[in-house]
């Protein structure tokens, strides 16, 4: 049995030909295979990285961009810890398809998935999409953003390492610090933790946490509206907290009793 602390599933999606396979090859094998044929179905690679002295295993699923394989590729969204949505900075159409991809993510992926937007092929001279356009799109949709070049090995390592870091941090937050388990809380209890909202089911006493998407917690809060004190800071649950604070793992902001 290999020794690793966490295993994360990372799934790459995006139009055909934006360089998903090349990104994966570059990262896992250090290669840039020229004339890479279209991926058929789903490819699978594993790479173990080290984050703060801990071994983190990344299971990378490289999916085919073509519409025909959608049922196969979509089936991987839900169990993914991170989704990397790739477009080609030298191809406006690949960028124009991003909203469609987001819709798919909304429909099939888990609400707590880490979403990363990647503008690939920065080595290309014929750039059609300035960096800020990608950045704005990512910001608007609450995604991380990075530009890469699989050919020049630019930012590729960083992309995956950042994802591993972010996921590790989120995982560690999921193991509640003791204070949560000891409390006699009413059920369910909402706890804000970083950018995410947790629902603590104290009836099970083990304080299993579910991380929810900002949108979700708004829904949950609305559902519980009948029992909710209107003065409670619902707004905090309704909107993502600012990025700067989201990084602070110790930020257990509010505990709301319903």
């Amino acid at each position: 049995m290999e020794d690793y602390k966490f295993l994360f599933k990372v799934v790459l999606i995006g139009n055909a030909g934006v360089g998903k396979t090349c990104l994966v090859r570059r990262f896992t094998q250090g290669l840039f295979p020229p004339g890479q044929g279209a991926t058929i179905g789903v490819d699978f690679m594993i790479k173990t990285v080290e984050i703060e002295g801990e071994k983190i295993k990344l299971q990378i699923w490289d999916t085919a961009g073509q519409e025909r394989f959608r049922s196969i590729t979509q089936s991987y969204y839900r169990s993914a810890h991170a989704l990397i949505l790739v477009y080609d900075i030298s191809s406006q159409p690949t960028f124009d398809c991003l909203p469609d991809w987001l819709r798919e993510i909304e429909q099939y992926a888990s609400c707590k998935v880490l979403r990363v937007l990647v503008g690939n092929k920065t080595d290309r001279e014929d750039r059609e999409l300035p960096t800020h356009v990608g950045e704005e799109f990512a910001h608007r949709h609450n995604m991380y953003f990075i530009e890469t070049s699989a050919k020049e090995a630019d930012n590729v390592e960083k992309l995956f390492i950042e994802i591993a870091k972010e996921l590790t941090q989120a995982q560690e937050c999921c193991f509640p610090h003791p204070p949560l388990t000891g409390f006699e809380l009413m059920t369910p209890t909402f706890v804000f933790f970083g950018r995410s909202l947790f629902v603590v089911d104290t009836l099970t006493r083990t304080a299993k946490l579910e991380i929810c998407h900002p949108k979700m917690c708004q829904m949950s809060l609305c559902l519980q509206q009948g029992k909710l004190d209107q003065n409670l800071p619902v707004a905090h649950g309704g909107y993502p907290l600012p990025r700067s604070r989201a990084r602070d793992a110790r930020l257990v902001v509010v505990v709301v009793w319903l």
Binding site: G37, I40, G41, A64, R68, I72, S75
Partner: peptide, 22 residues
């Protein structure tokens, strides 16, 4: 061989099959 038309066609058939099976 793995990029042959047959392999691609079969992948498409499997893709269609998967949608229907889902």
């Amino acid at each position: 061989l793995s990029q042959s038309q047959l392999v691609c066609d079969m992948a498409v058939i499997v893709g269609d099959y998967t949608i229907l099976e889902q």
